[in-house]
């Protein structure tokens, strides 16, 4: 889905990523690689496979869109325990399959816990904030002093309801000064957002991204907004 904003156009991808067409950049957030491994290291016996699945999905997305650059909007690794040889090996194997791709990581709260990545991972540390054309890239959308920000961090989800049916799905959350994108990692939870005012939410049907703002408001708010003079 193409999103036309004051700062330019963005393409929201059904795989929970964003394509910035002007610079041919792919943006993903909150991969939380090694989360399962970290849980296992602390005695919670969760099955393995989520790190591999996340990287596989990312590879598929790169093959499909052939971007010039990849920006990870924070939380690449889950924590210091996730900075384990098994995870780092997977990460560098994935990295070496795309030698021409430029990969940058905006520092997230989990990246701070995980520590600096070894050189072999080939991920450029981009600090906490980066300008990409008219956009500001950050881990969290933070203060309003920045330009239009694209961020992750909260793993936004939304509850949509219609008639008898209701569902909670990860969502893109378009706010006044920022776009918060859903978590890309296979083992990540979510934080419920409720769009207010002019905010909008977009969810993936698997094949496309669609505007779900009406369904997210609930029948009462929908009726109220229908009566509001616009």
């Amino acid at each position: 889905m193409r999103l036309a904003l004051a700062s330019g156009e963005l393409e929201l991808l059904p795989e929970h990523a964003v394509l910035e067409p002007a610079t041919r950049s792919l943006l993903v957030a909150d991969l939380h690689l090694g989360k399962g491994l970290s849980f296992r290291a602390q005695g919670l016996n969760v099955p393995a496979g989520s790190t591999a699945l996340t990287l596989e999905r990312l590879a598929r997305l790169l093959d499909q869109h052939q971007p010039a650059a990849l920006f990870i909007l924070g939380d690449l690794l889950h924590d210091a325990r996730a900075r384990h040889p098994a995870v780092l090996e997977r990460l560098s194997a994935w990295r070496h399959a795309y030698p021409d791709l430029e990969v940058s990581l905006l520092t997230g709260n989990h990246d701070r816990k995980a520590g600096v990545l070894p050189e072999s991972c080939g991920v450029r540390a981009a600090g906490t904030e980066l300008s990409l054309g008219a956009w500001t890239l950050r881990h969290d959308d933070g203060d309003e002093a920045y330009g239009f920000t694209i961020a992750g961090h909260v793993h936004p989800t939304v509850r949509i309801a219609a008639g008898v049916d209701a569902l909670v799905r990860p969502c893109f959350w378009l706010r006044e000064r920022s776009l918060v994108i859903p978590a890309f990692g296979a083992m990540t939870g979510g934080w419920r957002v409720r769009p207010t005012g002019a905010e909008r939410v977009f969810i993936s049907t698997g094949r496309a991204v669609v505007d779900a703002t009406q369904a997210a408001l609930g029948p009462l708010a929908r009726r109220a907004s229908a009566h509001r003079p616009s």
Binding site: I160, G163, L167, R169, D211, A212, L217, R222
Partner: peptide, 8 residues
Amino acid sequence: IARMLAQA
């Protein structure tokens, strides 16, 4: 999802 959105 498509049905729910249309309904909404």
